[in-house]
């Protein structure tokens, strides 16, 4: 899994590429917790390059979303597609997160 970040307006766009499984999801969690600690408030997570997610990945998205909210920030997810969308829908994550068709649309929601 690769994670890249880019500042857009008052948000940090976090691009996740690869697999979020039990071995890699902790890296995502660690990275986002670091960014929150550095003072980042609003996050758009771009999952366009995400190929696979398991409950460990969902758990790390959940934990970091809670941390972002607790720090007074906002989170929006973008580009959740195919099998990732199916897993989100089955687990109920599709209804509890702001899910957007593009990074631009996610930015306009929380920016």
């Amino acid at each position: 899994m690769k994670i890249q970040t880019m500042k857009e307006r008052n948000c940090l766009v976090v691009t996740v590429v690869g697999r979020m499984d039990a071995t890699t999801a902790p890296n995502y969690e660690k990275k986002l917790i670091e960014l929150i600690a550095e003072g980042e408030k609003n996050f758009v997570i771009d999952f366009n390059g995400l190929e696979y997610i398991s409950s460990s990945g969902l758990r790390s998205i959940h934990v970091t979303a809670k941390a972002i909210k607790a720090a007074g920030g906002k989170i929006a997810l973008a580009n959740i597609r195919n099998v990732i969308k199916e897993i989100f829908d089955i687990s109920g994550f599709g209804t509890i997160f702001q899910i957007n068709d593009s990074v631009e649309s996610a930015l306009s929601k929380i920016g």
Partner: peptide
């Protein structure tokens, strides 16, 4: 999301 207990999801 702020309330849910994620255990058992797997």
């Amino acid at each position: 999301v702020s309330e849910r207990n994620i255990g058992g999801l797997g």
